[in-house]
Design a protein around this nucleic acid. Structure first.
Lengths: 194, 194
DNA sequence: CTGATTGGATTATGACCGTACTACCATAGG
DNA sequence: CCTATGGTAGTACGGTCATAATCCAATCAG
């Protein structure tokens, strides 16, 4: 392959970003080596630095891409509160818990992101806010900005619940935690918005 | 040091466990090498395997120790709901957010624990339940067992909120998220118990 | 009080994996 | 055909977990 129009390199880059997103969520940031990330995209380690400045650069890019992806799935759900309820139930489902690599990047990586350098955290912040503001617009179409923090609070609840459910060795208890999480999220949404 | 009564080896072991707890919370599980963990205890890597079977073994032990520690701090708070409110406010404070290595092991490591092998998750489960059941006993002295899942739900909310606050690059927003978390935790506690 | 014993540590080593980089190569486009 | 591009393969150098050989000093037996 050589001398393609620019779209070919961009397509390869995008393939790396997407496959990296899955592996990062499955094995963690520190748990994923550059060679493995490239192998997932059908490439070798050497090509990596033609596409990204560093591993951190890819991590930030992949996390942003994953959150953009989640945002698109969100847009596909029915509008308004009804669609939101559906999203919450899917998020806090055993299926989502058991498929880390297909799921929410925050639930898979949040504490590692908290340890990342500032630029990475900035990219995460921007990406998650774009996602959150979409939800806030659902809740308060007239004043989405004021619902931002309330929505972040519910999001944090959902992320923490999913993580906890993944970490518990007792499957039955892990399932109960998810159900409790759904009830809690609903309760907060019913109380809060005004 | 040699040929001490058994308490000396145990004391060294305990020192490793405690210093490891701090570093693991700061740098993550995959981010902490055995050599560094031992250096923190004033030892070299070779001595490690006289105390622990493997790194995973230490991780599980250190996490359990950290949770036991949290449980003791819990016991030191005023009894009943008043003490619980105080604990929640301390947990969701900027100080706690900014001192990962002194703080809650769940907030620092939960998603990495979710990726650990089953024995480690089992140790985590047992330890976190001991902690949670103490809180549940505060909430429902007559029937702590029934409050277990409700308490886990609030705990998940607190863990997720702290993690999110740590991952946000915007400090002001991160503070607001903490405050929202406090309101949410209180709301759930006021509604739930019956 | 002495000295062999032995537990706990150090240093060294194994094989492998981590990130980052560079020289080289095959090929498609002009 | 020849150049430029995107990729491969190989290198450098340090860190990873784990094991093994060695060493040191405190304790207990005599």
């Amino acid at each position: 392959m050589a001398r393609y129009g620019k779209e070919h390199k961009l397509a390869t880059r995008q393939r790396i970003i997407e496959t990296a997103g899955r592996r990062l969520k499955r094995d963690g940031i520190d748990g994923s080596g550059v060679a493995a990330l490239m192998a997932d995209a059908g490439l070798t380690n050497g090509a990596f630095y033609a596409h990204f400045e560093s591993k951190e650069d890819l991590v930030a890019t992949a996390v942003a891409d994953q959150l953009r992806d989640q945002r698109e799935r969100l847009a596909a759900a029915p509008p308004g509160r009804a669609g939101l309820d559906q999203i919450i139930r899917a998020y806090l489902s055993p299926e989502h818990r058991d498929s880390r690599e297909e799921g929410c990047p925050s639930a898979a990586l949040l504490d590692e992101i908290g340890r990342c350098a500032e630029p990475t955290k900035q990219v995460y912040t921007d990406s998650v806010l774009a996602f959150i503001d979409d939800i806030a617009a659902r809740l308060a179409p007239h004043d989405p900005r004021s619902a931002r923090v309330a929505t972040l609070g519910v999001y944090a609840l959902m992320v923490g619940t999913l993580q906890l459910s993944r970490a518990l060795a007792d499957q039955e208890l892990a399932d109960e935690v998810l159900e409790q999480g759904i009830r809690n999220a609903m309760a907060l949404l019913d109380d809060a918005p005004h």
